[in-house]
């Protein structure tokens, strides 16, 4: 088939197809993003305006009092702080504990390694509902109910994180370790100053995904911290519903503030989010 007879036709089809593709994709993107736009617009309306039929799209007057109301109705500042504490605690814990274990599993030889690793991996398959009753008892016995550590203690240990980091450690060349060993570096020194910096992308990916799960977690905080002052924002937000049954501007303002920190993290570290999800998809 002569080149020239194919080219123009296929190019025209390509352009029309490209427009159609963008149309479909944009429509989908609108469905994904519109609820957040509506959330913001509602938060900026007065209570009376939200009860209008048909609804107004833009607020008649932009009114931000709902945001203030959220902070007076709930110990919102404390809740946000508890969320930060919970998120940092779990993330730092996982980075430390998982990277240490992952390094040993990937790069060191020791008796029982494979059995231990299999045992650790089995944690991945246990649904959390099988664990939370006794976990609650443990926290209670430690006298930690309604405390900040209660939120993050069990979440500091992760089989997923260990598995993911181990995959990364496995890819590093052996020569680095051997050279360091000849120079007299001990195992911890090799881990800390040579190997760990090399898996930084994996650490970043693990950090953002752990931060996201921690910030968004609901079941565990609902169980251990029932005092509003000690709740993270995920659990605290649920009480807004009982208090403000039909006051949608306040509920939208509250949910907006509560989800904003993670969205900001997402905007700045998007690459790592995508990386961590793509990794979890390809490595398992």
């Amino acid at each position: 088939m002569p080149e020239s007879s194919v080219r123009p036709a296929s190019r025209r089809r390509f352009n029309a197809g490209s427009v159609a593709t963008h149309a479909v994709l944009s429509l989908g993107a609108l469905v994904m993003v519109f609820p957040f736009l509506w959330q913001l617009l509602t938060a900026a309306k007065s209570l009376a305006e939200t009860a209008k039929v048909p609804p107004t799209f833009l607020p008649d007057t932009w009114n931000w009092s709902s945001f203030e109301e959220v902070f007076t109705a709930l110990p919102f500042k404390e809740m946000l702080f508890n969320s930060v504490f919970n998120t940092v605690g779990r993330t730092v814990g996982q980075l430390v504990f998982c990277s240490l274990a992952a390094y040993a599993f990937a790069r060191m030889r020791f008796r029982g390694r494979n059995v231990l690793f299999a045992l650790f991996l089995s944690v991945l398959m246990v649904p959390s509902s099988l664990l939370v009753l006794p976990q609650y008892d443990i926290i209670q016995r430690l006298g930690l109910l309604n405390s900040a550590p209660a939120l993050f203690l069990p979440g500091m240990f992760s089989a997923f994180g260990t598995f993911m980091l181990r995959q990364f450690f496995l890819t590093l060349p052996k020569e680095l370790e051997e050279a360091a060993r000849i120079d007299g570096a001990g195992p911890f020194r090799i881990f800390w100053s040579i190997m760990l910096p090399l898996v930084r992308p994996a650490l970043a990916a693990l950090a953002v995904i752990t931060a996201m799960w921690s910030w968004n977690d609901l079941l565990w905080p609902l169980i251990v911290n029932t005092d509003p002052e000690k709740m993270p924002i995920s659990a605290g937000l649920t009480s807004l519903e009982g208090q403000f049954e039909t006051n949608f501007p306040v509920m939208m303002a509250g949910s907006l503030i509560a989800s904003l920190p993670m969205l900001v993290v997402y905007v700045f570290l998007q690459r790592h989010f995508v990386q961590s999800v793509a990794l979890s998809g390809s490595k398992s």
Partner: peptide
């Protein structure tokens, strides 16, 4: 090296034992 490896694995192992394996048996 053996001892180092166990030290590396121990923190996570203890965490799993306390917050995962023991609760599983308990449930």
């Amino acid at each position: 090296d053996q001892r180092a490896a166990y030290l590396f694995v121990a923190p996570l192992g203890i965490g799993f034992a306390v917050f995962y394996f023991w609760p599983l048996l308990q449930t």
